[in-house]
């Protein structure tokens, strides 16, 4: 949960100082990727999926839509993961499905983070009544159950395609980050370097973009990772119950078709297993990066090292 990290007692503070020569900024991002095993695992998984998403045509052996093979074949040299109940090659579907799932995660992650930033930071920066109203709106969105709302939204805008799916995820996914970013911006609001900028006569917009945002880089990145994870899961859930476009090729729609064809009982369990596994791996990549980030920005959470 987004709780203020209280300063640890004197002893750990020394440790934190030594461990963190430069707090904030892109240094942390860089360190996160290289120095931490969990982060490294996340980066590798993400990299592999990125390649699959960019050049699926070079890697997938068959047309993912073509229903040209025998149904529910087991894994073989021709069909690494077997075929679906409709006679399609599961391995090809899996590779082609990467693109949409990854696109949803990244686009929705970016958009929601943008909204979180806009609302969270202006809420903290403006203060007073604006802060009160914006915080209230944030809390309302935070507490409203997302899946039923997503379902209602998606059901009304049925067949609106990928755009609708992404908007639904963004609308329901920005609030958590906004709250976290607000509390961090709030703690920055009265820092000296901001006063200095104000004294120089800089406008609010300038102060927010050039003075506040850079110090919040690590939280912004963490927030993006969190929303991306949420987007992967939400998209999968919506597509699974048939609210995506069933003719799109994505992991969620694969699960939809697998479930509707009773894949588990009909002898093609891989049809249901592998897309979920990929969703989980992609989600885990984001989650691991996020977790590593937590550890890097809050040294107290790191695995303990003992002297002896």
């Amino acid at each position: 949960m987004g709780l203020d990290v209280r300063l640890v007692a004197d002893q750990s503070a020394i440790q934190a100082e030594a461990a963190r020569p430069e707090a904030g900024g892109l240094h942390i991002v860089g360190r996160a990727l290289l120095g931490n095993r969990k982060a490294l695992a996340g980066v590798i998984i993400l990299g592999i999926f990125l390649v699959l998403a960019i050049i699926p045509g070079m890697l997938a052996p068959y047309d993912p839509h073509a229903q040209i093979f025998a149904q529910t074949l087991g894994p073989s040299r021709e069909h690494l993961l077997g075929t679906t109940g409709n006679g399609q090659d599961i391995f090809s579907q899996l590779i082609w499905g990467t693109r949409e799932s990854l696109a949803i995660a990244i686009i929705a992650g970016l958009l929601a983070t943008g909204i979180s930033l806009l609302i969270g930071v202006s809420s903290a920066y403006l203060g007073g009544l604006s802060d009160h109203v914006l915080s209230l709106v944030t809390d309302v969105f935070l507490v409203i159950p997302t899946l039923p709302l997503m379902i209602v939204l998606a059901a009304y805008a049925r067949n609106g395609g990928l755009a609708v799916l992404i908007s639904v995820i963004v609308v329901t996914g920005w609030s958590y980050g906004a709250r976290q970013l607000r509390s961090q911006a709030l703690s920055l609001r009265n820092r000296e370097f901001l006063d200095a900028a104000r004294v120089r006569g800089e406008r609010s917009g300038y102060v927010i973009v050039f003075e506040i945002l850079p110090t919040m880089t690590s939280l912004i990145v963490a927030n993006f990772l969190g929303v991306a994870l949420y987007a992967v899961l939400a998209a999968a859930g919506l597509q699974f119950i048939g609210l995506g476009n069933p003719s799109d090729m994505s992991w969620g729609t694969m699960l939809f078709w697998a479930q509707n064809n009773g894949a588990l009982n009909a002898g093609s369990p891989l049809w249901a297993i592998v897309p979920g596994l990929c969703i989980g791996l992609l989600g885990a990549a984001f989650a691991l990066l996020n977790y590593a980030f937590d550890e890097i920005t809050n040294p107290a959470l790191r695995p303990v090292r003992r002297r002896r």
Binding site: L255, A272, I273, G276, I279, A284, A287
Partner: peptide, 12 residues
């Protein structure tokens, strides 16, 4: 890692 998997898929 497990929290990154869809609930319903774990069910499956």
């Amino acid at each position: 890692v497990t929290s990154a998997f869809p609930y319903f898929w774990i069910g499956l």
